[in-house]
Amino acid sequence: MSDVELICEKSFSEVDCEIVNRFIEFQQAMIDKNKDKLVEIIADDYKLVHMSGKTQSKSEFIDEVMDGTLNYFKSEIHDPTILHDGEKSASLIADVCLTAKVYGIDGKWTLNTVVSFKKIDGIWKLGDWEN
Rank of each mutant, 00 (worst) to 15 (best):
M1N: 03
D3W: 13
V4S: 02
L6D: 06
E9V: 02
E9Q: 08
S11D: 10
F12V: 08
S13M: 00
E14F: 09
V15E: 15
V15C: 06
D16K: 09
C17V: 10
C17E: 15
N21C: 00
N21F: 02
I24Q: 12
F26M: 08
Q28L: 00
Q28H: 01
Q28I: 03
A29I: 01
M30T: 09
K33C: 06
K33E: 05
K37Y: 11
K37C: 13
L38F: 14
V39F: 14
A43G: 06
Y46P: 04
Y46N: 03
L48T: 03
H50S: 10
S52Y: 08
K54W: 07
K54S: 05
T55I: 12
S57L: 12
S57H: 08
K58G: 02
S59P: 03
E60P: 08
D63Q: 11
G68C: 11
G68T: 11
T69D: 00
L70A: 14
L70F: 15
N71M: 12
Y72W: 14
K74A: 04
S75K: 05
S75H: 03
S75T: 05
E76C: 04
I77V: 09
T81A: 15
I82Q: 02
H84E: 02
D85C: 01
G86R: 01
G86A: 00
G86M: 00
E87S: 09
S89V: 03
S89R: 13
S89Y: 11
A90D: 05
A90H: 10
D95F: 12
C97R: 15
A100G: 04
V102P: 05
G104Q: 08
G107Q: 05
K108L: 01
L111A: 03
N112M: 03
T113C: 13
V115T: 12
F117W: 00
K118G: 14
K118V: 14
K119M: 08
I120D: 11
G122E: 12
I123A: 10
I123K: 13
W124C: 12
D128C: 14
W129F: 04
N131E: 11
